[in-house]
Computed example of a mutant assay.
Amino acid sequence: MTSSAPPVLVIGEALTDILCGPDGSRSARPGGSPANVALGLARLGHPVRLATRVGQDGNGAALRRHLLDSGVELTHGSVVPGASPTATAVLDEHGSATYTFDLHWDIPPSTLALVRDGAPGHLHTGSIATALEPGARHVEAAVRAARDATTISYDPNLRPSLLGDAAEERPRVEAFVASSDVVKASEEDLAWLYPERKPEEVAARWASSGPSLVVLTRGADSTGAFWRVGRCEVPVPKVRVVDTVGAGDAFMAGLISGLLSAGMLGSLPAGAEPSPRTRLRAATGAQALDAAVAAALARASLAAALTCGRPGADPPTLAELTDRQTAVPPVG
C-alpha cells in the first residue's frame, strides 16, 4: 500500500533477539522495540523511516533485509562498522521473556537534521533508545526539536538490567511522557518505576501531565486507556499464546496506525486547523472516548493478540487484521 503522507520517523534500537526456549532450544530473530514498531507500521501500510544503529555483520544484514522487505527505510548513517547488538530472551513455560543485552546505542548524526528540515509524519521512540547513553540525550533533543512540527508517541518499555535505580530513571521517563501525545506502558514498567504506587494511579497522573492518551497494558488481561477526564477498559482478544515477544510493540504500532488513519496523529502544518494534535485532544476531551480512538485501541489489541499467536516479533499486516476484524478502518 502506498501513501502520500510524509513518512513516520521511528528513532531507536534494532537488534537480534536470541530466543532461548524452556526446552533448551535457541533461535535468532530480528527485533528491538522501536524497530518492531517501525516494522508493524510498515506492514499496516504506513511509510516509515527508522533511525537506528546496526552493524555490518551477518546479524546486521539479516536485520536490514527483515526491515526493508516490509517497507521500512533506514535513515542515512544507520549502518555502521562492527557487530550488531543482540538481546538474549529466555522464555518461560508461558512464553514470557526476560532479557539480557549486548549493545552500544547512539543515533545517526543526521537524525536531528531530518526532524528540523522536514516534519516527519509522526515521531515515535522509546525503550533502550531513550534510556541508554550516549544516544538517549540525542533522542531527547530530537523529540524537543520535533514537538512544534509533529505529534509524538513514546513507549518506555523499560529494561531494568540496563538501568540504574528506578528513582534515577523516573525524571527522564517523565520528561518523555510530558513531551508526548500518546504514551503506552506495561504494568511491569510502572511497577518497576513506581513500586509503591498502583500502575493505574501512575497512568492517570501521566495523562494529566501532557499526553492526550496513556495506555496501560496488562498482558492477557484488559488494557486500560487513560485521558485527562476519564478512563476505560479495552478487552484483549483471546489467542493461543506461542510467546509474548514483540506483542507490546505490535500494540504500539496498531495504536499509532489507527490514530494516523483517523487524522489524530501527524505533522502540524502552519495555519492548518484543526491540526492532528487538536483533533486528538478533542477526541479525548470528554468522559467517553471518541469512536475513532476506541477503534484505534481495538486495532492495537488485535495486532498484539495476533503477534502472541506466532513465534518472535512478527506483527500482522493490514490484510491479516482485516481478515480477523472487518470493522478495522483502512489506512488513510
Rank of each mutant, 00 (worst) to 15 (best):
V234S: 08
L103P: 15
M264L: 06
A83P: 08
T223E: 01
A185I: 10
A142K: 04
V79K: 05
R29C: 15
A319G: 04
V183C: 07
V177M: 07
T223P: 00
A5F: 14
I152R: 06
S3L: 08
A250I: 02
V328K: 02
G82F: 09
K184Q: 12
E93F: 00
L63A: 09
S161C: 12
G121D: 15
P30R: 05
L321I: 13
G60H: 14
A129C: 00
A145Q: 11
A14W: 15
T86R: 15
G285P: 15
A14L: 14
T223I: 14
R172C: 05
Y99V: 01
D221Q: 14
D117I: 03
A225P: 15
V236P: 03
G31P: 03
A250M: 02
P109A: 15
T150Y: 05
E73A: 13
P109D: 15
L15D: 05
G40T: 06
S78L: 07
R170Q: 14
A97D: 12
A97R: 08
I256D: 07
E169S: 12
V143I: 12
G95R: 00
D57V: 02
G254F: 00
A292K: 12
W227A: 13
V8Q: 10
V8K: 09
D243F: 05
R228V: 03
L289Y: 06
